[in-house]
Design a protein around this nucleic acid. Sequence first.
DNA 1: CTCCTTGCAAATGATTTGCAAAAAC
DNA 2: GTTTTTGCAAATCATTTGCAAGGAG
Lengths: 163, 163
Amino acid sequence: MCVDTSLKGTLHRRGLRMTPQRQLVLDAVRDLGHATPEQVCTQVQAVAPAVNITTVYRTLDLLEQLGVVQHAHLGHGAPTYSEHEHRHVHLVCHSCGKVDEAPTELLSAVSERTLTERGFRLDATHVALSGTCADCAARREADSDDPDADDGAGTTETPEGGP
Amino acid sequence: MCVDTSLKGTLHRRGLRMTPQRQLVLDAVRDLGHATPEQVCTQVQAVAPAVNITTVYRTLDLLEQLGVVQHAHLGHGAPTYSEHEHRHVHLVCHSCGKVDEAPTELLSAVSERTLTERGFRLDATHVALSGTCADCAARREADSDDPDADDGAGTTETPEGGP
DNA sequence: CTCCTTGCAAATGATTTGCAAAAAC
DNA sequence: GTTTTTGCAAATCATTTGCAAGGAG
């Protein structure tokens, strides 16, 4: 093997240092699949309570620069981190917040089209597709035909029609 | 039958009141196409400097509940608001931050597929597709063609504007 | 006149930064 | 021993909230 894929090797090649915190953060990201910095921190602190959230933020940043992890924006505020190898498209339900994953090839046709028509190179892994998951769609349909009651602030009525 | 589409009418139907601030915020959203609360605020304050950003946030929230505007998450932190009628898919360059728009039908095939395969109802208007725009792709290619290994750690380049 | 809205200031929540102590090499 | 990393606390940024004054119906 010419290329050392271990975290230690990747760090050393850049003159950076291996620390338990860095390994823990990477483990947490791998473990959680896709997680916010806070979730990663919680996971890390389950093993090493002394680890500060600041370190988690810094380490996630570093690991991303190293190409070991990547982040995606799921719609609301929090970015989520996952392994760089673990490429997928996120499907986020904006009703219940559930995050599902789909293969990146789901968007390959779209990707081709944006490239051809606009020269826009779509990055499927950073994409979060918003919508309503099956469960929530069923719940809504059963409840009433309310096409877009976002957070149900008390108003049951939405007079908007089609264009 | 005759649905009053004016802001005043929409408000009155709910027992809410028409104010100059509300009209200004709506005008700004329409004017800007897709804008963050801060950008909306700046636009509004160009006409009425006394309007507070708090009011802008509250008004955008209200207008969204009324179905008059909607927000989309473009990837980084700031949500952007646009008219509900003005439905489009956002194409965000995560290198230069430029926002382009595409017709929603760009995702119709994907939408159908997620619905059939998973019961997931895609909301194309809340979607922001991330990628690299034509200009930035050209710039990168000229620099060096390294599509997968997103190094950039030691280089002078900062791919994301950063908060 | 009554209740909705606004503006201000302070609270909140997430992320960042400066710096001295601790750890890695 | 030298340089990188960490932990803490304070700073920052965007957004929200409480409350009294102001404005719409």
